[in-house]
């Protein structure tokens, strides 16, 4: 294909954009590494997983720095909410497209769009005054892994629903006409034609929401109880890595502060692992 001058200019401009966008994460990574260096040097990596507990206020020699329970907390809250939100979100999108009368679908979409913008503080606030007391009646103390999973599910659902919705919108109309011509039923069409065609978009939505579930801070902090322990039941309080940073960062100094950046670094590593796993699993063809 021949290329005009404007095309070449365009491509370089776009490459600049992409380079800037891609560099941000490197900047953040470098920043985290620099800030967590003191703790990594004074405390050492192994102690972050083998120490007796998390009491970092004293300096490196006396404090204890076990982050493992919070890593479990983060992973459990994330997987629970993703497992719940994915079917609900995809179901919502399917509802909008193939089941609801168009007026209801329009209203439903607007509702979901709104939810994407409700501040996490509001979800957390609602969770704290409504949800947690409800769970407490079921099984004390109330603030728990379960509360965290429910709130996270509600928070990330709009993302996956809107992304799935966009993906379904993009399914070519002739596929649907073809399915109709073959006499496929509604669900048969959705399962056999729509889902395979919209897979890429839906997976993108799921990856994005997984990221958000890992990164969510304020709401989780308000409903999870924030006790540093490995939960044995769904009613046990937990603390996630993000809540750990938010709770203590403003009050931390020295090695404690640096250890909180290690929490951030672990979160980043977690996401790198997730993203790579997704890529290996699909052999790099998720987006293709």
């Amino acid at each position: 294909m021949s290329r005009s001058r404007s095309d070449i200019f365009l491509i370089w401009a776009l490459r600049c954009c992409a380079a800037i966008a891609g560099a941000i994460v490197l900047l953040i990574g470098a920043f985290l590494v620099i800030e967590s260096m003191p703790a990594l040097q004074h405390v050492g990596i192994t102690r972050f997983f083998t120490d007796a507990s998390w009491h970092p206020s004293a300096d490196a020699s006396q404090g204890t720095f076990n982050l493992a329970p919070m890593l479990w907390g983060t992973l459990l809250a994330m997987s629970g909410s993703v497992l719940l939100a994915t079917p609900l979100g995809i179901g919502s999108a399917v509802f909008c497209h193939y089941y609801a009368p168009s007026s209801i679908a329009k209203f439903y979409r607007r509702l979901i769009e709104l939810l994407a913008g409700i501040p996490s503080v509001v979800y957390g606030f609602w969770g704290l005054v409504v949800l947690v007391p409800l769970i407490r009646q079921l099984q004390p103390p109330g603030p728990s892994l379960l509360a965290g999973i429910i709130i996270l599910t509600i928070m990330i659902l709009p993302t996956v629903a809107l992304m799935a919705d966009a993906a379904l919108t993009n399914v070519p109309a002739q596929y649907l006409r073809g399915a109709a011509a073959l006499g496929l039923s509604r669900w048969g069409t959705i399962r056999g034609v729509v889902f395979p065609a919209a897979k890429s978009g839906i997976i993108t939505g799921v990856i994005l929401q997984t990221g958000r579930a890992i990164g969510e801070t304020m709401a989780i902090l308000m409903v999870c109880g924030n006790v540093v322990q490995t939960p044995s039941r769904i009613f046990d309080p937990i603390r996630t890595l993000t809540a750990n940073i938010a709770l203590e960062m403003a009050y931390a100094g020295g090695d404690h502060r640096s250890a909180l950046f290690v929490s951030g670094l672990i979160l980043l590593a977690l996401i790198v692992v997730l993203v790579s796993a997704a890529e290996v699993h699909s052999k790099g063809r998720i987006y293709g």
Binding site: L128, V129, V132, P133, R136, P140, P141, G142, P143, L221, M222, G225, N226, V227, V228, P237, R239, A246, L247
Partner: peptide, 19 residues
């Protein structure tokens, strides 16, 4: 059983839990 940050969070936690 619960770890909190700011004062109001503590009050809301206690107000929502008789024990």
């Amino acid at each position: 059983d619960v770890v909190i940050g700011d004062n109001e969070q503590g009050i809301k936690t206690v107000a929502g839990n008789p024990d």
